[in-house]
Nucleic acid binder design. Structure first.
Length: 841
RNA sequence: GCCCUCGUGGUGAAAUUGGUAGACACAAAGGACUUAAAAUCCUUGCCCUUUUGGGAGUGCCAGUUCGAGUCUGGCCGAGGGCACCA
């Protein structure tokens, strides 16, 4: 039999795919989008998985009559281009574009149904011009602000570092100790939408619960009480926020953030300056903060207890109080908050219990840690005896009466800092005038282009160092002005690309409203879980921000359905010197031992981890496609593991996939060369019914993203066909049914399926097969027969067989009757078309 | 520390959503074909029984139910998110 040459049929079909679109002009729209890649150089298995899943959905929807939008583009601004440029003495744009070229060719090898006419790249002027325009719209709508904020400052590179660039408190490249430094930065006022972003999560039925929960926690809404403490012998007040106002009588100190305005009073105090310096040494990373020791600075100030003027509360500055949450001030109740407890221990402050767990003995004992559980109030004046919840309500009432505060809702979500001191990003379209004011660039002057001649080798902000770039003129007055030299965070680029895809060539504006209103929201978005919070939240913000200035846009949630796929993993290998080895440098001996090919030395087989360049446990998709064909790679990556879970790459697995696809090809050949047989209509009817069942099942499985189970159905179908080749089934019937099966395979293995369909002379290569549902109503049904809950037999019965008839059969059947004879049936449980259960004593 | 998710053969997993546990695949062992190998195909997979068959069994312990992988409570373990957020 002729073996199929996957490589040659794939080439043939890829040519056709590249010019065909998934357009059904009469169909309902379906926007299928996968997270677009960063053009890092070559595609990796993670891309293969992401885009294969997307392709299955896009093709499946198209075959079912939908009008499908399936675009692809490049998230092409970002730091790696600058680093690569610096290392290889290239320009970032050349490096980026050459990577795009390579990766595009590679993606095409996968046989994806992408409409490349819609391709966009965020580093193109055609793209970032519109981004600058959107920025100006946001600015004019009051959604942009300029604020001072703390950043990770690398004193050698003279630049701001992202949190992930700070390793153990040091700059990742310079190795300098990173400082906390205050810098004026641009912000998108995402916190204006905190409540909306939180509440609308509930409408997102098509999102994984996990992602919604992560966003919810990130937004972090909390209810509490704001209240003012009067400072003794001063007109100043301290406004604090607390979620535990009930513990007010346990307050033994007040702690202020080192950046609190009261600090001005101590600006000449040597000890305070020293303390502040100590605090600024800790970076801004979560890790650094969490591991930091609690330190404080005791002032000579005291606050009055709001409910008992006799009580004087000492005021401290403390490093664990954050300036950008609440008001940068807290009252410390050491007995019922662990941080306050730690602080009180260190500075020997009193610890007063105000919540009792109900055990009188405990009330007298010294605490060894803060008690944060439930209980009744004690030592709390008018609150005594109340529960925590009752006490909270009462205190808030009192605070309102005294006009010193009230109920308050707070969000953890902070505004989105978008300034980056980088070259390879979208320039922020703002200019500084001679009078010191800052205004947006006139829209007709857009795009503000990046200068091609840039020196990336000196530290600091490259655009700022450019000899001429920042010099410009105010278009209104003609007076000289200076450009903003910061560029935008690359998360901005990916916060609206899905809108651009609706009209990627539209010149006038960022997008054509009509097109956006037709295609948006994205019906299925597919990508990695690592973007669960930031990218998705920012995109949700963008959609809302756009609606503020563009009232013609209807959509406010960009992604109707979200699917987050798992990672691709592989074993790791180390040689005898502890160096990582690539899988193709080793030879497996057994499942847990291997040798290095070059010198036969022993290799340590390590744990299975997600593929990463640093651990060298990567498999090159192009090599795999070369060896096994794209369909085999696609087939393998969809088999075995559910798509939301991590998958383990295995050589034997992909080889087996390839063999199976070869068998499918062979099956088609055998059927075509089959000799027609006389029919047995009963056999044939059963055969067709079974195929119809498979059509229904596979359809449902794809709708549920259970691709691994769908793949298993095809293995069964293959066996099923093989078993029926020798039976009395006409050749036409075999052909018409294998044709249906090949149509079912199009989304999974588009090249092979189309090739087979061509051989079968199919006229329906753009339609999903239909199952005859009426036939299925007459199918025989498996009835499980149980005695005392134990399965004793499975009967094949007609649809809707009655309990009486089944019992008759059961009693006449030796296999089951032996369990029932001479015994009294106490009770019978009967579920139609499912089960019958006889209960004996 | 707080929050969430998940524990099923040697492995990846499936299970009509409370109704035949282990579909399908990988790996392993045995066999068929072959002079041989490769390729291909078949069988097996816990315990008792020669077979027919019977029994146990979805991390552990209890509960609800005619019936629990699935529901409830507790424990143990793994993974993830957040984290001086007051």
């Amino acid at each position: 039999m002729e073996r199929v040459n996957f490589r040659s049929i794939e080439k043939k079909w890829q040519k056709k795919f590249s010019s065909s679109k998934l357009t059904n002009s009469k169909g309902k729209k379906f926007y299928c989008l996968e997270m677009f890649p960063y053009p890092s150089g070559k595609i990796h298995m993670g891309h293969v998985r992401n885009y294969t899943i997307g392709d299955v959905i896009a093709r499946f929807k198209y075959l079912n009559g939908y009008n499908v939008l399936h675009p692809m583009g490049w998230d092409s601004f970002g730091l790696p281009a600058e680093n690569a440029a610096r290392l290889n003495n290239l320009s970032p744009i050349d490096w980026t574009n050459s990577n795009i070229k390579t990766m595009k060719t590679q993606l095409k090898l996968l046989g994806l149904s992408i409409d490349w006419d819609l391709e966009i790249s965020t580093c193109d002027e055609d793209y970032y011009k519109h981004q600058q325009s959107l920025f100006i719209d946001f600015y004019n709508s009051g959604l942009v602000s300029r604020k001072e904020t703390y950043v990770n400052w690398d004193p050698i590179e003279k630049t701001v570092l992202a949190n992930e660039q700070v390793i153990n408190g040091r700059g990742w490249r310079s190795n300098a100790v990173v400082e906390r430094r205050k810098l004026s930065q641009w912000f998108f006022n995402i916190s204006q939408f905190s409540d909306e972003l939180l509440e609308d999560l509930e409408k997102l039925d098509g999102w994984p619960q996990k992602v919604k929960l992560m966003q919810k926690n990130w937004i972090g809404k909390s209810y509490g009480c704001e209240l003012n403490f009067k400072i003794q012998n001063s007109s100043d007040q301290i406004k604090i926020f607390t979620t535990r106002p009930d513990t007010i009588f346990g307050a033994t100190f007040i702690a202020l953030s080192p950046d609190h305005f009261l600090g001005h009073q101590f600006k000449n105090n040597v000890e305070f300056i020293k303390f502040k310096k100590e605090c600024s040494k800790t970076g801004t990373t979560e890790e650094a903060l969490a591991n930091a020791d609690k330190i404080g600075f005791k002032t000579n100030l005291f606050a009055e207890h709001p409910f008992n003027k006799e009580i004087k509360i000492p005021i401290y500055f403390a490093n664990f109080v954050l300036m950008d949450y609440g008001n940068g001030a807290i009252f410390g109740c050491p007995a019922h908050d662990q941080r306050d407890f730690d602080f009180a221990k260190k500075y020997k402050l009193p610890i007063i219990k105000v919540v009792s767990d109900g055990n009188k003995e405990h009330d007298k004992m010294k605490l060894i840690e803060a008690y944060t559980g439930v209980g009744k109030m004690i030592n709390s004046s008018f609150l005594n005896g109340l529960s925590i919840e009752e006490a909270k309500i009462k205190i808030i009432e009192k605070v309102k009466e005294l006009k010193i505060g009230g109920k308050k809702t707070l969000f953890r979500l902070k505004d989105w800092g978008i300034s980056r001191q980088r070259y390879w990003g979208c320039p922020i379209p703002m200019i500084y005038l001679e009078d010191g004011s800052c205004v947006p660039v006139d829209k007709k002057d857009l795009p503000i282009k990046l200068p091609p001649d840039i020196n990336l080798n000196s530290p600091g902000n490259p655009l700022d160092h450019h000899p001429t770039w920042k010099n410009t003129k105010d278009s209104k007055t003609g007076k000289p002005a200076k450009r903003e030299t910061d560029t935008l965070d690359t998360f901005v680029d990916s916060s609206w690309y899905f809108l651009r895809f609706c009209s990627p060539k539209f010149k006038k504006e960022a997008f054509d409203n009509e097109k956006v209103n037709y295609w948006m929201p994205v019906d299925q978005y597919i990508g990695g879980i690592e973007h669960a919070i930031l990218h998705l939240l920012y995109s949700r913000f963008f959609m809302r921000a756009i609606k503020v200035s563009n009232t013609n846009v209807n959509c406010s949630e960009p992604f109707q359905n979200l699917f987050t796929q798992g990672m691709v993993c592989h074993e790791t290998y180390k040689d005898k010197n502890g160096n990582w080895l690539y899988p193709n440098e080793i030879k497996k001996i057994k499942s847990n031992s291997a040798i290095k090919i070059s010198d036969n030395s022993k290799v340590t087989v390590g744990p299975i981890e997600s593929m990463s360049k640093s651990k060298k446990n990567t498999i090159d998709p192009e090599e795999m496609i070369e060896k096994y064909g794209a369909d085999s790679v696609r087939w393998f990556i969809l088999s075995d593991s559910p798509p939301e879970k991590d998958i383990q790459w295995s050589d034997t697995g992909v080889a087996a996939s390839s063999k199976f696809l070869q068998k499918i090809w062979n099956l088609n050949q055998v059927i075509m060369s089959n000799k027609s047989k006389s029919t047995n209509s009963a056999d044939e009817k059963k055969f067709v019914e079974k195929i119809d069942l498979y059509i229904l099942k596979i359809t449902e499985l794809i709708n549920n993203f259970q691709f691994n189970v769908a793949v298993a159905q095809f293995y069964e179908i293959y066996k099923f066909f093989n078993n029926h080749l020798q039976k009395n089934i006409r050749k036409e019937t075999l052909i018409s049914n294998i044709e249906k099966v090949m149509r079912l395979m199009i989304p999974f293995t588009p090249h092979l399926a189309n090739e087979c369909l061509e051989v079968l002379n199919s006229k329906n290569t753009d339609k999903w097969p239909k199952a005859n549902k009426e036939l299925l109503n007459n199918l025989k049904i498996n009835i499980v027969v149980q005695v005392n809950g134990k399965t004793r037999d499975v009967l094949q019965m007609e649809n809707n067989t009655t309990e009486k008839e089944i019992t008759k059969t059961v009693l006449s059947n030796l296999k089951t009757s032996k369990f029932l004879s001479d015994k009294k049936i106490v009770k019978t449980i009967f579920v139609k078309n499912r089960i019958i259960n006889y209960i004996l004593n």
